[in-house]
Simulated assay, not measured.
Amino acid sequence: MSETQIVEVPLGERSYDIIIGAQALAGAGGEISRRMPGIRCAVVTDETVASFHLETLIHSLDAAGIEAHPLVLKPGEKTKDFDNLMTVVDHVLSCRLERGDAVLALGGGVIGDLAGFAAGIVRRGMRFIQVPTSLLAQVDSSVGGKTGINSRHGKNLVGVFHQPDLVLADTAVLDTLSDREFRAGYAEVAKYGLIDKPEFFAWLERNWRQMFSGGPERVQAIAVSCRAKASVVAADEREGGVRALLNLGHTFGHALEAATEFDSRRLVHGEGVAIGMVLAHRFSAWLNLASYDDADRVERHLKDVGLPTRLSDIEGGLPATDILLEHIAQDKKVKRGKLTFILTRGIGQSFIADDVPGEEVHRFLEETRSS
């Protein structure tokens, strides 16, 4: 397990590298100038991330002769809205950046999604650089080109596919995350094992503590996760087929986020995914597709890590099951009103179920809530 790993996302002329290692942030300026000589950039970040990492990044960009224009936004999921999108767009245009210049996202998934959306629509598409500072962003949202904002109808319902030109994942910056944020990101790491890599899930069961504490296990886990996502994105860039597998746990999870009004005090994305993955495995067992033993194993591991695993773990309670089902029906994978879920036949045996009856989901949720 090396200190730095490079993962390629193979998309022909739009291929790009993910550089994973403990010095990626300090070396950002040199890496960017070498790959994109003469580029200027708008740096979009939030107040929390800026307090830890903005100075290091700007110093690196300055040293490489890269003109940078920072914009600092409020932290939190509620920043992913139309008002903040226009703030980013106006900033990029007021700095007179051109199509060949870049929007650089320094932050977690919220900043990456928002800045990427702006990069995709300003001047009909600018260059985009991801410098993810959360575990969740490093293994998931910074890779694959999905960008967007939330609406009152649900999460990530407005956006575009816009691939980055480079991803710089500094594993050392993860030490500045709270325990809760790191655990939330870990849910997305475990997801890759549960989709189709049972040996990776077993490795995580043995090595998660070392991965949490840093060192080569952390780099290894992030690299495996990025390779897994890169291979799926290369096969199905715009989620017309197999890429939907990456949403294991997300159909339930996004509904739970919407039901809690995107209040990060009650639930953050990775926590919703953790509960959603347990629900997906239990729903699969409920439908006689998988074993309850596997569902128990998934729940046990995520609980050991410190993640919520049950609906009752969500502070403040949830609305009626009918309301939860309405949120599920807003999921982006719904086709002609038919519910699509990622279900499983066991650990690492996930599949796309295209026509799940809503009444079955309702019955399952009602039974789950009463147990």
Rank of each mutant, 00 (worst) to 15 (best):
L11P: 07
S15H: 05
L25N: 06
G27H: 04
E31M: 15
R35L: 10
I39E: 14
I39C: 15
A42L: 09
E47C: 05
T48S: 14
A50S: 02
E55M: 12
H59L: 12
S60H: 05
L73E: 14
K74W: 14
K78F: 09
F82Y: 12
D83T: 13
T87F: 06
H91Y: 11
V92S: 03
C95R: 07
V103L: 04
L104V: 15
L104M: 15
L106E: 07
G107P: 09
G108C: 05
G116Y: 02
A118P: 02
A118W: 05
V122A: 04
L135I: 00
Q138A: 03
V139S: 03
V139A: 04
D140N: 09
N156Q: 06
V158D: 02
H162S: 02
L166T: 00
E188N: 06
V189D: 06
A190Q: 01
G193P: 03
L194D: 08
E199Y: 09
M211N: 08
S213V: 06
P216V: 13
I222C: 07
A223W: 06
V224F: 02
R227E: 13
A228K: 13
D236H: 07
G241F: 06
N247H: 12
L248V: 11
H250F: 01
G253F: 05
A258T: 12
E261R: 14
E261Y: 09
F262C: 10
R266A: 04
R266L: 06
L267A: 01
G270D: 11
E271F: 02
V273T: 01
L279T: 06
R282L: 11
F283G: 10
S284I: 01
L302Q: 10
V305K: 03
P308A: 14
R310F: 10
G316W: 02
L318N: 10
A320W: 07
L325M: 06
K332P: 04
K333G: 07
K335A: 13
R336F: 13
I342Q: 05
R345G: 06
G346M: 01
G346N: 02
D354M: 14
E359S: 07
E359T: 10
V361P: 12
H362N: 10
H362Y: 10
E366I: 01
E367H: 09
